[in-house]
Design a protein around this nucleic acid. Structure first.
Lengths: 341, 341
DNA sequence: ACTAATTATGCAATCGGTTACATAGTTTTT
DNA sequence: AAAAACTATGTAACCGATTGCATAATTAGT
């Protein structure tokens, strides 16, 4: 069992004061080179490690960034996190990651513990359930940088990073219309989150443009899990006007749909054309390959990290809340291709 | 800008000592109910929040668990993390997550920063590159609980959580043999990590049993990324004896293989039967559906979390290093089905 | 050689909670 | 009613690093 060694131990060993040791270790200019190297050597020899608790307490900062996401295990989210981690780590920050599991309750709890843990900044992608935002006041009141990404809410002075969801929803729907679809069903998550709501608005806008707003056909799902597939198929088969297009705001679920529809005897894209969202790896695996909207997850993570770091470094005026809008991209594959007949 | 309120502020406000405040907030038995509720009320009113830095410094613990994984954005790893997070969070622990990106250098660095951050325990899945393990000494020397999962190394007193990789490799290979394959290629990651090495041993063992050890056919890849696919196809087409089976230790890559082979004109499973590893969601999306080995990621995460928590609570004798072996399961799908001809 | 400027180091307070030990106030015991 | 046993609270040291200010040691200036 190694004993813990502190700057006091080093000080005693070298016959200097703890202050000198501290300054040496932090490369303070007013310490002579000779002393510095003496200290460094002793630190090396004794296996000295700084005690961050003490340091943090003294400096009032933790070099830690908190992250709250709805769910760790989705391709999109883990990709975003990977980007955040890369940037944070390279800058010497640690990342405390927690998941809300789409629960407002848990999001509040996590916000509280992360605050108490003294994170220097907080990055959040909101739970679908969340309807109140007071729990973030602890951060805004103390002017601790707070940033929202993907699932955002507008709070004064809090930057947001999103894609143009309205436009993306419009593009996806417009594409299906261009391919000849006339009765497009929109399958999406709770519209409580603006990301999803905006896609819906885009969907409607595209329909409106071709005077198809009457046959808007919306299906909102609680989760995007495979158990919900039956209700989808039921709704499609029960439709008085046959559904000929599907805009699903999640690739994984779109893939479930394709599989279920094929099984039910529908031809894709001949009978029903489908477009998903996110450009998850699965979209290229399914047959027919899934058209989708490319959502730049890694870049989003990197930008979120960089944005929050520049706030922490003060290189950006904290007052100037910025909104970063990433470009999405329509990716056309087989699942929505117009069939020549 | 809210001012920070400390136990000293509360003490002054209530005319008691900071010690009383501290004890009240921690529900210490020797404080009268009247005083306790007075303190709690005041804490509520003033918006008091404990300062974890101070608390941690005093208590010498952080309620934080460190995690190092090779890569955040894989379905398997994010699922494991999700399980760990669930357990840790429910027990009031925060999770600091970092990724080594398969680099020994970065793994060392992360180990150091996590140590300095004062994590109460460390969970590690090793980078593929890692060949030395001294960087974990800081933890073992101080008897800070250290656990390895999935990609493990045996260090005295450090529990490990794995599946029986040898058996899994054997099962996968045996299955292909049972389906009639006689020239099975094994595509895997660097054999430096025992997880992969054991699968390879299992593969060989199955071949040995049917006296096929002569035509062992091994392909080791650095990464499992799509750029390596060409070399795979090249090796398969160049084989003097036609390859009729493929055991790939990663579903995602197995899926790439299927797509490339189909494109190259091979019929699956007729010409080549394929089995993957992990039971990633993609395995059910590809056509033909991919046979695979079910790897219980979420359970692994949950068990890793529980194991480390019990060590922290001292409810398990720290000296008794345990090894948890999870059951895998052979999942047979279309990609390896014997064709009746 | 003597003062001024510069460089290197130490002193001591501070960050905010925790807790062993001491003490004052109450209740129980005999 | 005095001693014993609790109960409730306060005192003060401690956790380990940081840093403004003071001071000692060295060098430069005239």
């Amino acid at each position: 069992m190694e004993k813990k060694v502190t700057i006091y131990d080093l000080a005693k060993r070298l016959g200097v004061s703890p202050a000198t040791v501290s300054r040496s270790l932090n490369d303070h200019p007013s310490i002579s080179l000779k002393t510095k190297s003496k200290v460094m050597l002793a630190a090396e020899e004794t296996g000295y490690r700084i005690n961050k608790f003490a340091s943090n307490l003294s400096l009032q900062k933790s070099n830690t960034i908190g992250v709250i996401v709805p769910k760790l295990n989705s391709d999109f989210m883990s990709t975003v996190l990977s980007g955040i981690e890369k940037i944070a780590n390279d800058a010497g920050y640690n990342l405390i990651i927690s998941q809300s599991l789409e629960s407002e309750e848990k999001e509040k709890f996590n916000t509280k513990t992360l605050f108490e843990s003294g994170v220097d900044a907080l990055l959040v992608s909101l739970a679908n359930e969340t309807k109140t935002y007071d729990h973030f006041n602890t951060f805004t009141n103390r002017k601790i940088p707070l940033l929202f990404f993907d699932r955002v809410i507008n709070i004064p002075d809090c930057p947001t990073i999103i894609i143009d969801n309205l436009r993306a929803g419009y593009d996806a729907t417009k594409h299906l219309l261009d391919q000849g679809c006339r009765n497009i069903m929109h399958i999406t998550h709770g519209l409580n989150r603006s990301a999803y709501y905006q896609r819906y608005v885009g969907y409607k806008k595209a329909l409106d443009e071709v005077k198809l707003f009457e046959i808007e056909n919306l299906l909102v799902l609680d989760q995007f899990n495979s158990r919900e597939i039956d209700s989808v198929i039921a709704k499609i088969t029960a439709s008085p006007e046959p559904i000929d297009g599907l805009f699903v705001t999640n690739d994984t679920f779109a893939v479930y749909c394709i599989k279920a529809l094929l099984k039910a005897g529908y031809r894709i894209p001949d009978d029903i054309k489908i477009i998903g969202f996110n450009n998850d790896p699965v979209s290229e695996v399914i047959n027919p390959e899934l058209s989708t909207i490319e959502y730049p997850g890694y870049r989003m993570g990197v930008l979120a990290g960089q944005s929050i770091l520049s706030h922490l470094n003060g290189s950006i005026n904290i007052e100037s809340a910025d909104q970063i809008l990433l470009k999405h991209q329509l990716i056309i594959r087989q699942s929505s291709r117009k069939t020549t007949n």
